[in-house]
C-alpha cells in the first residue's frame, strides 16, 4: 500500500499475549489478539474497524496508541516509527494520538472535577499557566457543547452523552491529529448517539482530525467512515471504501456480518447468512484461513496451513483471498 502521505500506518503489526499455565506459570500458548495487521489512515480520514467481540479490534486500537508494546511489526506516525520507542521517547507522540473509550462511566475519575479531568493533559505536558489552562478548559468544554459551569462539577452529575463529551474534550486537549475511538457511542441511547456522532463529524471537519473508529454497530460505522476494515480473529479480512464494502462485499465473513444487521424497515425482507457458533478463541489459531471453521464450506488442508494473500481486487478494495471464502475473479 502507498504509505507516502498517510498519517498512520501499521506494518504487519502483531500483539500476542502469553497464556500462562502449569505450576510455574510459564507461557504455554500465545493469545494472538492482533496477528499481522497492515493498514493506513490518511489525514482527515475516518477508518472504520468492525468485527465481533473478541476479534482484536480494541487491542489493535490500544496497540496503535502504544498503550501496549507490540510483539512485532511497525507503527509509523507520519513516518516516525513508534513500535520500538521507550516511554520517554514516546511522550511527544502521545500528544498526537489520543483515545476515546466506550464506557464514559468508567473512563472518567469520579473523584476529580470535570475541570481537573480536562486540564490534566496540560499539566502532564507542563503547558501554560493556571489561568491559561483554565481558559483552555473553558474553550474545550464549549467546543464539545458543554456549559462553562461544567468544569466545577463531578462526572456523576452528567448523563452518559455528556460524559462522552467530557471524554472527547479531554482527548482533544493537546490538539491531537489522530483519535482512536473505541466504541464511543455503543453505551448511548439512539437520540444521544446521533448527537455525539454529529459532534465527532463536526470536529473532524473543523480540526482536520483523523479517526480510527472502532465499533460493532455496522450502520454507525458505515455512516461515519470513509473506508472500513473488517477484522476477524486478529487479522483484517477485507478493507474497502465504505460504500464499496456494503455494496460489493467479497469475503464470506463480511457478507455474513452485513447481512446480520437488522434493518429498521418492516417491509425489508432480510436475506440473511446466519453464521454458526461464535468467534473461536485467538489462542493458537490456524495459520491459514481463520474463517474456515465457521464458513460451513470445506477447505483443503493447504488453505488451512498457508496464509491467504491480501489482494487488491479493485482500486482500494483489499481482501484476504482465501479461494473458498473470498473467491476472487481475475481482471474484471
Amino acid at each position: 500500500m502507498n504509505n507516502g502521505t498517510a498519517i498512520l500506518s501499521t506494518d504487519n503489526l502483531r500483539m500476542h499475549f502469553p497464556v500462562k499455565g502449569g505450576v510455574f506459570q510459564r507461557a504455554v500458548a500465545a493469545c494472538k489478539a492482533v496477528d499481522g495487521v497492515s493498514l493506513t489512515i490518511m489525514p482527515g480520514e475516518t477508518l472504520g474497524l468492525v468485527g465481533e467481540s473478541g476479534c482484536g479490534k480494541s487491542t489493535l486500537g490500544k496497540t496503535i496508541a502504544r498503550l501496549y508494546e507490540p510483539t512485532s511489526g511497525g507503527i509509523a506516525f507520519e513516518g516516525n516509527e513508534l513500535a520500538d520507542l521507550s516511554r520517554r521517547q514516546l511522550k511527544p507522540f502521545r500528544r498526537e494520538i489520543q483515545m476515546i473509550f466506550q464506557d464514559p462511566y468508567e473512563s472518567l475519575n469520579p473523584r476529580h472535577t470535570v475541570g481537573t479531568i480536562v486540564e490534566e493533559p496540560f499539566v502532564i505536558h507542563k503547558m501554560g499557566t493556571r489561568a491559561e489552562r483554565q481558559q483552555w478548559v473553558a474553550d474545550l468544554l464549549a467546543k464539545v457543547g458543554l456549559p462553562e459551569s461544567a468544569a466545577g462539577r463531578y462526572p456523576f452529575e452528567f448523563s452518559g452523552g455528556q460524559r462522552q463529551r467530557i471524554g472527547i474534550a479531554r482527548a482533544l486537549a493537546l490538539k491531537p491529529r489522530l483519535l482512536i475511538c473505541d466504541e464511543p457511542v455503543s453505551a448511548l441511547d439512539v437520540s444521544i448517539q446521533s448527537q455525539v456522532l454529529n459532534l465527532l463529524m463536526e470536529l473532524q471537519r473543523e480540526m482536520g482530525l483523523s479517526y480510527l473508529f472502532i465499533s460493532h454497530d455496522l450502520a454507525v460505522v458505515k455512516h461515519i467512515s470513509d473506508r472500513i476494515a473488517v477484522m476477524y480473529l486478529g487479522r483484517i479480512v477485507e478493507l474497502a471504501p465504505a460504500e464499496e464494502i456494503y455494496n460489493n462485499p467479497v469475503h464470506a465473513y463480511t457478507k455474513a456480518l452485513i447481512s446480520a444487521i437488522p434493518v429498521p424497515d418492516p417491509t425489508h425482507v432480510p436475506d440473511r447468512v446466519i453464521l454458526e457458533g461464535d468467534v473461536p478463541t485467538p489462542i493458537d489459531p490456524p495459520d491459514g484461513c481463520r474463517f474456515a471453521p465457521r464458513s460451513g464450506a470445506e477447505h483443503s488442508s493447504e488453505m488451512l496451513e498457508t496464509l491467504p494473500p491480501f489482494k487488491e481486487i479493485s482500486p482500494g478494495h483489499w481482501v484476504e483471498a482465501c479461494p473458498v471464502c473470498a473467491p476472487v475473479r481475475h481482471a474484471r
Binding site: S191, S194, L197, A219, P264
Partner: peptide, 14 residues
C-alpha cells in the same frame, strides 16, 4: 436519528 445503511455517508444526523 438512527444512521441508515442507505443514508448519505458523513451527513449530519437528525
Amino acid at each position: 436519528s438512527i444512521p441508515r445503511l442507505n443514508g448519505t455517508p458523513k451527513s449530519e444526523l437528525q
